Simulated assay, not measured.
Amino acid sequence: MNTLATLAFSAAVATVSFAILPPAASAQSAMAYPEKCKTEGMKTDMSKNDMSTGGMPMGEMTDYQKASMDGMKDMHMNMMQGMMKKDADVSFVCGMIAHHMGAISMSEVELKYGDNEGARQMAQKIIDAQKKEIEEMSKWVDKEAK
């Protein structure tokens, strides 16, 4: 994906859903993104990149919105790294691992800040299912990725 398309995609996602995206450290610290999914030479720190905040100044964001924006940077970096793999199968699985990690992070935001019991139950169900799938996909990557 070229830089302009990446920025446009990031801005669109931020504008539509910045309030529900993942917190930075939670899923990333609980489950590490597989080394075989990382692309050598690709910048891994998006914290210095200008990321759209949906037009809202950072100072006006709530704590959950700030955590969500930080997490979105981590998720997008991992997804972009995974999708840059030369093997289509490895690229798909690595991209899905990052995507699932983002789903876990989004769910953790809900558990931390949400107060609707139904939404919180959905979040916990997502965490449980996605962790299992990440483990399965990570084992596949370890075995199949060169």
Rank of each mutant, 00 (worst) to 15 (best):
S47M: 14
M56R: 14
M56F: 08
S10L: 14
M75W: 11
L111M: 08
E117V: 06
M51F: 02
D74C: 07
M58N: 10
S10H: 07
A123N: 12
N78I: 02
G95P: 00
A119M: 13
A67F: 02
E40A: 12
S105H: 04
M42E: 07
T15R: 01
A25N: 00
M61Q: 03
G55I: 01
D70N: 09
P22G: 00
K131P: 06
E110C: 12
T44G: 15
G54E: 03
K38I: 05
M77Y: 10
A123H: 07
F9Q: 15
M84E: 07
N78Q: 13
D63N: 12
K66G: 04
Y33M: 04
I127A: 06
M80D: 08
E133C: 05
S52W: 08
M101N: 02
G41Y: 06
A129Y: 09
M122E: 14
A24V: 09
G118T: 13
A14P: 01
F9I: 15
S68R: 03
T53E: 10
Y113N: 08
A30L: 09
K131M: 14
T6S: 11
Q124E: 15
A103Y: 00
A129S: 14
E133D: 15
G41R: 09
C37Q: 08
A11L: 00
I104D: 00
H76M: 14
G114M: 05
K85V: 10
V109F: 06
V13A: 08
E133F: 09
M122T: 10
I104F: 05
E117Q: 07
S91G: 02
M61S: 01
E108Y: 09
M84S: 07
H99D: 05
A8N: 12
L4D: 10
M96Q: 08
F92M: 08
T39W: 04
D70A: 13
I104G: 02
G95V: 00
S10Y: 10
K112P: 02
A24G: 02
F92C: 03
G82V: 03
A27R: 04
G114W: 01
A24L: 10
M106F: 02
M61D: 03
D89N: 09
S26Q: 00
A11D: 06
L111Q: 11
Q124L: 12
C94G: 07
M51L: 14
K38N: 12
G54Q: 01
A123C: 14
A32P: 10
S17H: 10
G114I: 01
I126P: 13
T6C: 13
T44E: 10
D115M: 14
M56K: 15
A123T: 13
A32Y: 10
T15C: 00
Y64W: 04
A103V: 01
K36L: 00
P23D: 04
E108M: 15
E60H: 05
E40W: 03
P23C: 04
I126W: 01
